[in-house]
Design a protein around this nucleic acid. Structure first.
Length: 425
RNA sequence: GGAGAGGUGGCCGAGCGGUUGAAGGCGCACGCCUGGAAAGCGUGUGUAGGCUUACCCCUACCGAGGGUUCGAAUCCCUCCCUCUCCGCCA
């Protein structure tokens, strides 16, 4: 959520910054009139309330002295009618303003480049090298099915398209990856592990920005007011909703592994094969609550924390900085980590690390305060995948495959696989 | 699911129709005292909004939303949450 005062005082400047995302953002102006009405109404209402207060105090005094106060009482009754009317109007305006506000995306950070879509994203750096194969590398689905690690057919029977069953060594590998990632983030990178609910309420979805605009992308429960989380970002960031944090305690860093549930409405035909795009997948999410002035530096730390996993597994990747037009709704600045997939000769997103600035904090009312006093300020929130387990599974099979169809288990992962060195039938 | 108890400022805890934004205590900040520190003493210490945008001032907020009343933290209704006991259950 953007700061209403800033919009009010300089709507054109805000609008120009928003336009970098693409689109005209007329809705910004639709909010100004009800906001003006609200303020005028509020002033009048407060004036009347002040008068009412004074008259009521007089009534009290008169009554104590045993005098008649009927006239004053009648006057207050009349004022009350006006107040009620005004307050209803104010609340109406307020609600309209708030609704509009929730639908306006975050401002891109000034450092973010222009561009309409991912083709304009900026290459930042890469790490490692593409593996070389003396044969044509197979795609992960084929490798996985041949080794009996994953079963799409039965998953389709049980649930439907875009689901998978991990089986035997495959299930073990997935669990190993998750434990490995959580251990690295908690033991080496300073995150505290959280294991949150997978069902959350509407307020939480609104806090991080999934609602009200992206309801069609969420699974919801039929008889209860819950949504399935599309990422651990939702429960973990909302962990501190409506709190004032001690400035000294920042940054607060959490890592959480949860399943993520996404309807993938509108991506029919996209990545229909394999594990890349599923309705349910596991992901280790990293969340950082930062002092407002430190989030730019925090974002760099976050990216490296996520990248640490790829480095330890010796997987080639590149870092891309998203252009303004490719930014997510709540994002101010985002780096994607893209891992190399040899079967398709492409880099594929495996982590998305975002600085939301104060946008989510404003929606969730998360602030921080210095110990010596001073006004509470909205903190900045950041999060990034560290990493998506399903896609990491994909990268591992593809990059470590051998000609005979087996897959080497990278050194760093072997302790989590009871010393196993190779995946084979 | 049934029965009961309760939700007040950073925390503890009073208040149960009329200057109560809210006693008292703890904590915290500043000052005094001291060679220094503790103790002690004094002062201050919520948030949001409005207006000025410097201070002042004004309004709202005692879980949330309604209602009664000239006036509600205090009375009534609805909802939410927490705790205890019983039942059921991984």
């Amino acid at each position: 959520m953007l700061d209403l005062k800033t919009i009010r005082e300089n709507p054109e400047a805000v609008r120009n910054r928003l336009r970098r995302r693409g689109g005209d953002f007329d809705e910004l102006n639709e909010l100004l009139q009800p906001e003006e009405d609200r303020r005028l109404g509020l002033q009048e209402s407060e004036r009347l309330k002040n008068k009412k207060k004074q008259l009521s105090a007089q009534v009290g005094k008169l009554k104590q002295q045993g005098q008649d106060a009927a006239e004053l009482m009648e006057e207050v009754r009349a004022i009350n009618v006006s107040i009620k009317e005004l307050d209803e109007k104010i609340r109406d305006c307020e609600q309209r303003v708030h609704e509009k506000l929730l639908g306006i995306p975050n401002l891109p950070d000034d450092s973010v480049g222009d561009g309409a879509d991912e083709s304009a994203n900026r290459w930042v750096r890469d790490w490692g090298a593409k593996p070389e194969f003396s044969f044509t590398p197979k795609n992960h689905a084929e490798i996985g099915e041949r080794l009996d690690l994953i079963d799409f057919k039965r998953a389709a029977k049980i649930s439907g398209a875009r689901f998978v069953v991990y089986k035997g060594q495959g299930a073990g590998l997935l669990r190993a990856l998750i434990n490995f990632m959580i251990d690295v983030q908690t033991r080496e990178n300073g995150y505290q592990e959280l294991y949150p609910p997978f069902l959350v309420n509407k307020e939480s979805m609104q806090g991080t920005g999934q609602l009200p605009k992206f309801e069609e992308e969420l699974f919801a429960t039929r008889d209860d007011p819950f949504y399935l989380i599309p990422t651990a970002e939702v429960p973990v960031t909302n962990f501190h909703r409506d709190e004032v944090l001690d400035d000294e305690s920042l940054p607060i860093c959490y890592a959480a592994c949860t399943p993520c549930f996404r309807r993938e409405a509108g991506s029919y035909g996209k990545d229909t094969q394999g594990l890349i795009r599923q309705h349910q997948f596991d992901k280790v999410e990293l969340v950082r609550f930062s002092r407002p002035e430190e989030s730019a530096a925090e974002l760099e730390v976050l990216v490296e924390d996520a990248a640490a996993i790829l480095k330890k597994l010796n997987l080639h990747y590149r870092v891309m900085e998203l252009c303004a037009g490719d930014l997510g709704f709540a994002a101010a600045k985002t780096y994607d980590l893209e891992v190399w997939l040899p079967s398709q000769n492409v880099y594929r997103e495996i982590s998305s690390c975002t600085d939301f600035a104060d946008y989510q904090a404003r929606r969730m009312r998360i602030r921080c305060k210095k110990r010596g006093g001073g006004k509470p300020k909205f903190i900045h929130t950041l999060n990034g995948s560290g990493l998506a387990a399903g896609r990491l599974f994909v990268a591992l099979l593809e990059n470590y495959q051998q000609q005979d169809g087996t897959v080497i288990i990278p050194e760093a992962l072997r302790p989590y696989m009871h010393g196993q060195k190779v995946l084979k039938l």
